[in-house]
Simulated scan of single mutants.
Amino acid sequence: MLLHRILTALVLLPLVIGGVLYLPTDGFALLLGSVILLGGHEWTRLAALTSPPRRFFYLISIAGAMVLLHLLLQDPTLSLGLFIMASVGWLVVSWQIVRYRPDQSAEPGQAGKLLIGYFVLLPTWAALVYVHGSGETGPVLVLYTLSLSWVADTGAYFAGRQWGKVKLSPHISPKKTREGVYGALAAVGIWSGWLIWLRPETGSMPQIVLLCLLVCLVSVVGDLFESLLKRQAGIKDSGNLLPGHGGILDRIDSLTAVAPVFTLGLLLLGGL
């Protein structure tokens, strides 16, 4: 399994980096849109939507929404409003994750889960496309946004494996530990130094470090949220498209929370 994960990562990483750095923003938007649609297809599995016509309609609606968002992103005020709403949404999800109990929490119905899919997937696309088109350093900032979720996941994995004892949320994901979260925070705290060095105009050192640590915590919520939906659906992975990794959603679960929150932070700091 670990070998499969490494091999898949070695194949995907150059493609991701090349697509981010060398595609124009419209090309990047199309490439990312295809990834989001694959994630949307997997989301129908989480929502137990089995009818092919209804699945097709759901994906068409996501594609149409991305076209609309592409037009709205031209307006800075509307963009800011979108990322504020998405970030507040993740704050609500964080609260729901903290207070979740299997015997006390109501599970959303199919329609509710499909609506949640819009909330999770569309702001991710909008945030990354917005950052990519924000100037000469936009593509590099997109890579940094992606790297935040990668670094957090890696730090959590190794710290949890080495020192993990206290369960973080046993009702949702029994393998995740508080020590893993501490490892993620430590790794991201160190990684924030790269942004400070690369783009000092983003903000002061305390502001950048604090933003990255906040985003790290949000990445944990994104991971737990998808784990909860998979548990409710009775499945281990969202799909099997990526050998050793599962599906698209299994790879971007943290990013769905990271992207809009980090973009909002950059906007509020005046870094975009």
Rank of each mutant, 00 (worst) to 15 (best):
L128S: 03
V93P: 07
D75C: 08
V93S: 04
G117L: 05
L69A: 11
A126L: 12
Y130L: 12
V129N: 07
L141G: 03
L143M: 09
I62M: 12
L128H: 02
V92P: 02
L148G: 03
L143G: 12
V131Y: 05
Y58G: 09
Y144F: 15
F56H: 08
V131A: 06
S79R: 14
A152T: 05
D153P: 02
G155M: 01
I60C: 13
D153R: 01
I60T: 12
P76A: 10
G112P: 11
K113E: 12
L69K: 01
L78V: 12
Q74F: 08
D103M: 09
P108K: 11
D75L: 07
P53C: 03
P108I: 08
Q110W: 04
V67G: 04
L69R: 01
Q96H: 13
G133Q: 10
V88C: 11
D103L: 12
L143D: 02
A111I: 15
P102L: 10
P76H: 08
M85R: 11
V151Y: 04
A106S: 14
L78Y: 10
R54C: 00
I84V: 15
L148Q: 03
M66C: 01
M66T: 00
F57S: 01
L91S: 15
G117Y: 02
W125K: 04
T124K: 00
A152N: 04
R55H: 09
Y100I: 04
L91I: 14
V142G: 05
H132C: 06
E136G: 11
